[in-house]
């Protein structure tokens, strides 16, 4: 494993920590899209099915279990915690699951490396992860005051994707058989979705103002 990949994973892990910190410490999930969180849970569950039949490393297994467990925990807070669930912007979080899930499923059935149950689900998770952030970005555009923890959460997720791209470039040159077009294209699409966010994020940071995305 190279340094970029490790930094990407750590950034991903940190983003989850920041989100859990926000929810637990402030007892609020304001500005967080439950749709995005549930899509991520679906991404992890469909991708990490291989926990049952293939072992890569202890690191991989622990990370996989951690991502599934934290995703479930976040959803539990947002849906069932008496205090937290009242802070959920349900009326604003209107993105339709079907708009994202259906095209990804169709694409995974058509475009995959191998037509097997687990491989199609794995490919589906790659496509779905690319667009799962959309409900969160839409919600943030609608939210007037985006708090720092929410902004940092999304920034860390974006950093994770960016670092993975650097990791792919590195692996492309260091590992002769490393060719992953399907993963790369989805990853670039996913990272591009953050471009707009990062523009306003750095601008707010430079001027020391609160982040606000134009509608």
């Amino acid at each position: 494993m190279n340094l970029f990949r490790l930094a990407g994973d750590m950034s991903h892990l940190l983003s989850v920590c920041v989100l859990l910190l926000k929810i637990r410490a402030t007892k609020s999930c304001r500005g967080i899209s439950l749709k995005t969180q549930e899509l991520y849970a679906l991404v992890f569950v469909t991708r990490y099915l291989d926990l049952f039949y293939s072992y890569i490393s202890l690191y991989n297994s622990i990370m996989k279990v951690t991502f599934i467990a934290t995703a479930v925990s976040i959803i539990r807070y947002m849906r069932f915690d008496k205090v937290v669930k009242q802070t959920y912007d349900k009326e604003q979080d209107t993105f339709r699951y079907a708009f994202l899930v259906a095209p990804c499923l169709v694409l995974a059935l058509v475009l995959n490396h191998r037509f097997t149950f687990t491989e199609v689900l794995w490919t589906f998770s790659i496509y779905l992860e690319a667009v799962a952030i959309l409900p969160q970005l839409v919600l943030m555009q609608r939210t007037q005051n985006i708090d720092n923890l929410t902004a940092n959460y999304v920034a860390l997720l974006g950093a994770y994707r960016g670092l993975y791209i650097v990791n792919w470039i590195y692996r492309y040159f260091t590992e002769p058989h490393y060719r992953q077009w399907l993963v790369w294209i989805s990853g670039v699409v996913q990272t591009a979705l953050y471009a707009d966010f990062f523009y306003f994020y750095t601008k707010a940071w430079k001027h020391n103002t609160r982040l606000q995305l134009p509608a």
């Binding site: 291989d50 991502f67 491989e119 794995w122 590992e175 058989h177 993963v183």
Partner: peptide, 10 residues
């Protein structure tokens, strides 16, 4: 082999 490579990331 190719499959294994694709699946070793998170």
């Amino acid at each position: 082999q190719r499959r294994q490579l694709a699946h070793d990331e998170l």
